[in-house]
C-alpha cells in the first residue's frame, strides 16, 4: 500500500496533506508557547525547561522533546520531498507556456512553491539561530531562550527574516489548509465556506501570534 501511495500523484498529495497538518498542529502549539514571552523571562525560560521534562518520570529528560523533533523532521522531509517531486512533474506536464499569458492561472501554485522554499530556508536559519545558536547574534546561552529571542529581534535582519517567513506561513496555510481538506476528501460544496473561513482564521491567527513576539521586542514591551 505504501508503494501505491508514494507512486501516485493523488497518494503523494495525501502525504503532503498529512505532513502539512502535522506541522500545522505543531505550529499552533509553538505559537501559543511563544506568547509566554510576554509574562517575563522567568515564566518563558521555565516553560522552555518544562519542554525538556514533559512526561517525566515515564520519559527521561528530553525524551518527549526528541520524540516531537523526530516526528517533525519526518514530516518536513516527507512534505518537502513530495512537494519537490510533484512540482517537477507539474512543470514537465506543462512545458510550453501560452503566448497569451494569464497571470492569475498559477497564483496559488506559485505562492505555495515560493512560500515553501522560503519556509524551508527559514526553518534551517531558525534552528541555527535559536536552537543551536550557530548563527545567533550576541552571546547565545543554552537554557536562556528569553535572552536569546530578545537578541535575535534586536537585529534588523533577524526581524526581516522572521516577518517575511511568518507572512509566508500565513499564505501557505491559507491555501494549504483548504487544499489538504480537498486532498483528504473531506471538502464538499456545503463545507466549502466553513473550510475557507477556518483556513483564513488559522492563517491570520498564526501570523499575528508569531509576529507579536518580534513586535513586542521592537516596541520594548519585551526586553
Amino acid at each position: 500500500m505504501a508503494r501505491t501511495v508514494w507512486n501516485s500523484t493523488v497518494g503523494k498529495k495525501t502525504v503532503m496533506a498529512v505532513s502539512g497538518l502535522v506541522m500545522l498542529l505543531y505550529l499552533v502549539a509553538h505559537m501559543i508557547g511563544n506568547l509566554k514571552i510576554f509574562f517575563g523571562a522567568g515564566e518563558f525560560n521555565h516553560y522552555a525547561h518544562w519542554l525538556r521534562t514533559v512526561g517525566e518520570p515515564f520519559m527521561h529528560y528530553e525524551w518527549t522533546l526528541w520524540l516531537i523533533r523526530v516526528v517533525l523532521v519526518v514530516a518536513v522531509i516527507a512534505h518537502a520531498v513530495s512537494a519537490y517531486q510533484l512540482s517537477r512533474r507539474d512543470i514537465k506536464a506543462r512545458p510550453s507556456k501560452y503566448v497569451h499569458r494569464k497571470p492569475r492561472a498559477s497564483y496559488a501554485t506559485r505562492t505555495m512553491r515560493w512560500g515553501g522554499i522560503i519556509l524551508a530556508l527559514f526553518i534551517v536559519w531558525h534552528l541555527l539561530d535559536l536552537t543551536t545558536g550557530t548563527v545567533h547574534s550576541g552571546g547565545f546561552e543554552t537554557g536562556k531562550p528569553y535572552q536569546n529571542v530578545v537578541d535575535t529581534f534586536s537585529t534588523w535582519y533577524g526581524n526581516t527574516i522572521y516577518v517575511v517567513a511568518m507572512i509566508a506561513v500565513g499564505l501557505h496555510i491559507r491555501h494549504g489548509f483548504w487544499s489538504a481538506a480537498q486532498t483528504l476528501g473531506v471538502g464538499s460544496r456545503t463545507r466549502d465556506r466553513a473550510l475557507k473561513t477556518t483556513a483564513n482564521a488559522l492563517a491570520l491567527l498564526l501570523t499575528a501570534g508569531f509576529l507579536a513576539v518580534p513586535v513586542g521586542v521592537m516596541t520594548g514591551v519585551v526586553s
Partner: peptide
C-alpha cells in the same frame, strides 16, 4: 504524464460543462 493537482481551480473555471472542483475532492 499529466501533472498533479494543486487546487488552483482553473479547470473548473474553464470547463464548458460546469464540472465542479469538488469533483476532484
Amino acid at each position: 504524464g499529466f501533472g498533479g493537482c494543486t487546487l488552483a481551480g482553473e479547470c473548473a473555471t474553464a470547463c464548458p460543462k460546469g464540472i465542479p472542483l469538488t469533483s476532484i475532492t
